[in-house]
Computed example of a mutant assay.
Amino acid sequence: MKRLVYSGPPETVGIVEKEMNGRFEVVAPGEEPESLLPEIERCAVFLDASMKTRLTEETIAKAKALELVATATTGATHIDAEALRRRGIPLLTLKGQTEFLRELTPAAEHSWLLLLACARRLRGAIEGTLRGEWNRQRYPGVMLRGKTLGIVGMGRIGTWMAKYADAFGMKVVAYDPYADEFPPGTERAGLDRLLAVSDFVSVHVHVTEETKGLLSADKISGMKPGAVLINTSRGEVVDERALLEALRSGKLAAAGLDVLADEPDIGRSELWQYARQSERMIVTPHIGGYCPETVERAVAFACGRIRDYCEGGAP
């Protein structure tokens, strides 16, 4: 029997076994590279729901029996897609699975949480209180009503962000050259104008060759002074060195990030190092879409795509 190696939360292994229903020998060695990589080299199918291990060209070359790679995520920057393509191995992600994804809201909810936390200087207020301080004047917040939210990428998550902003009485401008329709009340704008007028900028685009470095040093320099940047898409979309300098100089008031270009090797990240020293930076470990109920649904859906592919249907 062919082997399927699964990397994901231990509590979801049973879902994979149930969905595969004896089609594969399901092996779940854990999410850490030292236990996972040797198993990948022996499997026919690799299903990933953790994004903790990079599937490099070297590993792919060693995986002689590998026939299919699938993820229960929309992004797959941790997987060398070009190395898979050269071997003719399909890569199935959740990107483009609109009907399934549209009702999954945790990533948008987490994006809004980061926006609120930055607006109210929540990290500093919590840390100060835990140090025994009680000084409300030290952490003045920003009222959202009447402020402008700029949304870069008006897809599923961006659309939810526009709805949340409307509920808070904010103005919304959005940039997305590929979106045909924007939510009611949302102003379509070029990227330069969006950055110039927005008090908060939230980024929600897939990482592609076109979007890598989309928020370049020049774009960040054109942001409204005192603005806040939220990024829950991918670290590669933002020039992280330019963002760091904008925070250090006071050009930007704060940043809330759920992604870093160097993740999961965050020790190399200058933004992570800065966050250890500054309350103006909030960094979370790529947890935007991570809620047990949504992970379970995504894993089951990914298993269904694997079944469809193996049965010769459209994945």
Rank of each mutant, 00 (worst) to 15 (best):
A314K: 14
V203Y: 06
V259L: 00
A49P: 07
R280T: 11
V259T: 00
Y175T: 01
A300F: 13
P285C: 02
Y290H: 03
E57N: 10
S278R: 14
G169V: 10
L257K: 05
E32S: 13
G158M: 01
N135G: 15
A189N: 14
R234Q: 01
K171S: 01
P33N: 14
M154F: 07
V237E: 03
R248T: 13
L191E: 09
E31M: 15
L144E: 08
G288V: 00
D199Q: 05
A65C: 05
G313D: 10
L243S: 09
R307T: 11
G226Y: 02
K95Y: 13
K212N: 12
E263T: 01
Y290E: 04
L215W: 07
G304V: 13
N231T: 04
G213K: 13
R234H: 02
C291H: 14
E34K: 10
F182R: 08
R54H: 12
G213M: 11
L149Y: 05
R193T: 15
A196Q: 11
R138D: 15
R42H: 02
E263L: 00
K64H: 07
A255V: 09
V201M: 08
L66K: 04
A70G: 06
R123W: 03
V45F: 08
W134R: 15
V13P: 05
F168G: 04
A107E: 04
P264V: 02
S221A: 14
I282M: 05
I79F: 03
N135Y: 11
G124M: 07
P106K: 06
V172K: 00
L194Q: 14
K52C: 01
A275S: 14
T56H: 04
E240A: 09
P106Q: 07
G190L: 12
L215M: 11
E41C: 05
V207W: 07
M143I: 06
E19H: 08
Q273R: 14
V173A: 15
A63C: 00
D262P: 12
G304K: 13
Q273W: 08
L116K: 08
L247D: 09
K224A: 01
V283K: 03
P292L: 05
G141P: 08
